[in-house]
Design a protein around this nucleic acid. Structure first.
Lengths: 172, 172
DNA sequence: AACGCAGATTTCGATATCGAAATATTAGCA
DNA sequence: TGCTAATATTTCGATATCGAAATCTGCGTT
């Protein structure tokens, strides 16, 4: 144990200092409050997801693939789309899919319309893992939002959805 | 060019399908709307940050270190704290700090109070990079929030801050 | 004061990721 | 049709990350 055992600053305190620092460095306050909050929250969630994924013997990258495939909603998904979605190089996705195929989580098949393409799908096992993970994650996520009432959650979601709706227009 | 050039689904469409899928898999709707929105937004921001960081010749991991040090606000920062903050193993942080030290972005010094510890600080060059990055990022971030008025931004930030304030209580 | 335990960092071998080049197929055009 | 440019995926060598073990320091007990 170190001589001086510093208590770690609270997430709230760290958030406030971060906003102040970003503003001091030239950011707009109204922007930084929102963006910093979103990023802080997402990173904290990632930490919790990582712990839960250990139980399922999945890496965060593998989970990203499963989630992307599960939410594709019938649309065919190619390796390159998965790479984009996961912020990862296409060559990394090749290896990742190799391992996930070996484990029986996903299946590769040639695109009937275009032989340069490969389509990736979840297997039944893959779907099973997805549903187990969602139910487990929902527990933590509910706790995270426990401080907000039903009305506040809806308000928050509405505002975030406005931002998301604008997102595509920014893709230059 | 493939035979069928599918237009990629909009971010909004993908978000809505994701929420529907998570709910179908057993998640609460009021939870999934918020959490999915936060995660979608954060990942989209990460993509844009990655592009901007190329200009500064920084990886996302290196940026995470710089941001953590910049927002530490005078508090001493150890390698293990940086590893935690960046969701990365302590041994990876050792290597990352080696390279950043070589480049003159950060400085390691022994903790005067405890010789098992190492304290990490930004150099003047490191601060310069931080400020340049914040100003550049603020441009994109402002665009992302362009659809919200001043009042709505404040409302959104207020709600997110409630969630953040509750975060520490969940650290078991 | 000496001992053993706990914490922080680094070292080391295995694995994952990256970027560039290679391969294969398709689209567009003369 | 034949040719060239573009796209999707994989291969390959270099680098980054991981987890376990090693090293070192400081704390607490006897």
């Amino acid at each position: 144990m170190p001589t001086t055992r510093r208590r770690p600053r609270s997430a709230q305190q760290r958030y406030q200092e971060a906003v102040a620092t970003y503003v001091a460095a030239g950011g707009d306050e109204s922007v930084q409050r929102v963006i910093t909050a979103v990023n802080s929250l997402a990173r904290k969630l990632d930490q919790w997801y990582a712990r839960q994924l250990v139980d399922l013997d999945l890496t965060q990258g593998e989970w990203a693939v499963i989630a992307e495939l599960a939410t594709a909603d019938g649309t065919p998904v190619t390796p390159s789309r998965l790479a984009d979605a996961g912020n990862v190089a296409a060559s990394s996705m090749t290896h990742r899919l190799d391992k996930m195929t070996e484990r029986g989580l996903v299946r590769r098949s040639p695109d009937p319309d275009n032989r340069t393409r490969v389509l990736v799908e979840l297997t039944d096992d893959g779907w099973g893992v997805f549903e187990a993970a969602v139910r487990e994650a929902n527990v933590v996520e509910s706790d995270v939002l426990a401080g907000l009432g039903k009305k506040q959650r809806a308000e928050l979601a509405d505002l975030l959805e406005v931002v998301i709706a604008d997102l595509d227009a920014l893709e230059t």
